[in-house]
Design a protein around this nucleic acid. Structure first.
Lengths: 341, 341
DNA sequence: GTGAAAGCGCTAACAA
DNA sequence: TTGTTAGCGCTTTCAC
């Protein structure tokens, strides 16, 4: 019960104090250019004196907007290096503030149902828009939301339906991996291996294509230098051992920091060194683990701060039904160099 | 503009469909026991058919509640292992759902001002309550909120003012470290070192007291086995080197996984092994880094899921002004064993 | 057990 | 430029 014991100022209070009507106070807030300068100032003084802030519920009811954006939080996956959500969320909330938006979190009752939770928030008019993040498994949310004409932006491309017209922001994983390959090749590596995700992962294949294409562009062979599997430490470890047993790669580019951790483990188990003088290693995501693991893991870092900014820009566009230009944004990651390469 | 093209059902719609008045529908929702069974069923059918969900803004305006809980998100600290927020947030949102609450995120304009951001949300009646998390630097928020009679719960004890009466939930770091000491001592270690935070950190000193007291309880000396400094990898590394140069500890208990990573690095640099057969190592927080770093870092894990449950319980109590019992909850962490010990 | 009336605080539309 | 009127969708109060 906020305000239990405080007489909270309302439009009426302020209007009385300033000697104007309620509507004039409302205008002072929403269309100040309509007021005569002296009236405006009088009202503003009253607002300040009384510490008035418009009541959100009343405004929401009247304008049929909440300025809230729903974000469904997926369970954090344990045993995985990433943990990007932390970094992303802060940037996102920050960007939202400038646009007068807030992030409302929700979770699914049934995690396996990608649509669960959206409907309830929508029907209760609790949010104006959604931010959809888990597009890695395709995103049925996009179609569902589009059918209902609900404003939303997705972080992640609609891989299986590239023609989808909803706004999205994504990071160019392919370009990120190319950065990694260039980095290693520039330092003289020729046998650069790829350790990545299963073929069924759109994101995984996109990143891998950066490795394949850049290797070929530089006249380097990719034969027998690729491994695909689960996003686990154990897979990275096994894959690295197998490759080191047979095909003598001198460097590894990994689809995730998690896998890179497994590769690192294999390198250590063989009494070799991860670093520029022995086996080089590059991960993906610049997770906290990459930053803190000895000797420091070189990794592709997603520009999450910029992702957040772009997402909010697109959300704003959709919310005011502004003509949407540049509704598909692809941002380029950068390589964070550390001692592993 | 949600519902732009959909005629959203309202109380009136449902009432018309069920052939009752609006209030009866409202009662069916909020006090179903008042209705005659057959009326109730008729109304419920109509609700279901029309897919009706009460409008949040209207309800909020009328009841002067939002069922929203504000949580100020602090910037994620890079180069630090923890990243607990991810895991915590999901549990929190989950628990909130059962209580009919939602989490609204906000950030500070001025990060150095611990009160920044609270006031605006409060005055606009955007949230009913707050969850305060960054109590490590003392929490002026507690006093500020208490003065204004704003419901809130803090995650973290009011260290500098133990008598503060606001509800809080915390994890017993001291007990967690005792678990670590026992684990190591049970395995024969006698020279167990502490690498922790500066004396100015309440949390750091609490954890350290677990080491001191349990060591003494077991008749083990702590002399020259303690180091205190910043929460950085570099400090952990330097401290470990210094101790290994002089005082021959056989195991390290660290105040954080970040520090443990530095110790691990030092161990590796000396050509020694982190593990049960050479130098044992225990961290704190069970970060993703601890889980993925080779060979796996034993670490004290905070029961964040339970923390979330307790926090929501206390929030509910405060929101209905229920008599508050057990408003101070201390939960015991557990030790996650891995190959580093 | 059900219905009618009032009003939460705000803004859109219009009148002065 | 300012004020008046109406009403967003809901719950509370009080008749019936």
């Amino acid at each position: 019960m906020p305000g239990r014991h405080r007489p909270v100022a309302t439009l009426a209070t302020v209007a009385a104090a300033a000697g104007v009507s309620r509507q004039t106070v409302s205008n002072a807030l929403n269309s100040p250019e309509l007021l005569r300068p002296d009236t405006l100032e009088r009202v503003q003084t009253a607002i300040e004196t009384l510490g008035y802030t418009p009541n959100r519920a009343a405004r929401n009811l009247r304008t049929r907007t909440s300025h809230l954006v729903g974000l469904r939080l997926e369970p954090a996956v344990e045993g995985t290096a990433s943990g990007l959500m932390d970094r992303f969320l802060h940037s996102l909330v920050e960007s939202c503030k400038e646009a007068g938006l807030h992030i409302l979190l929700f979770t699914a009752e049934d995690v396996s149902d990608p649509l669960d939770g959206y409907d309830a928030l929508l029907r209760s008019a609790a949010v104006d828009a959604f931010l959809v993040t888990d597009t890695y498994r395709g995103n049925p949310q996009a179609q569902w939301l589009e059918e209902r004409q609900v404003p939303f932006v997705s972080f992640g491309r609609p891989w299986e339906e590239p023609s989808a017209s909803h706004p999205w922001v994504d990071v160019d994983g392919r370009a990120g991996v190319m950065l990694a390959v260039d980095h290693l090749a520039d330092r003289g590596h020729e046998r650069i291996a790829w350790v990545g995700w299963q073929k069924s992962s759109y994101i995984g294949e996109d990143r891998r294509s950066g490795w394949v294409d850049r290797m070929h562009e530089r006249g380097l062979s990719t034969t027998r230098l690729s491994a695909r599997g689960e996003d686990t430490i154990e897979f990275g470890r096994r894959a690295a051992h197998a490759m080191l047993d047979s095909d003598q790669p001198s460097a590894f580019v990994c689809c995730s920091d998690t896998i890179a951790m497994g590769v690192l483990q294999a390198i250590n188990e063989r009494g070799r060194q991860a670093g520029p003088h022995d086996l080089s290693l590059v991960g993906f995501d610049d997770s906290l683990a990459a930053q803190v693991v000895p000797p420091g893991l070189t990794s592709v870092r997603q520009p999450l701060e910029e992702v957040a900014v772009q997402i909010v820009r697109l959300l704003e566009d959709r919310l005011v039904m502004r003509s949407i230009e540049d509704a598909h944004v692809i941002l380029t990651p950068e390589l964070r160099l550390r001692a592993s390469s």
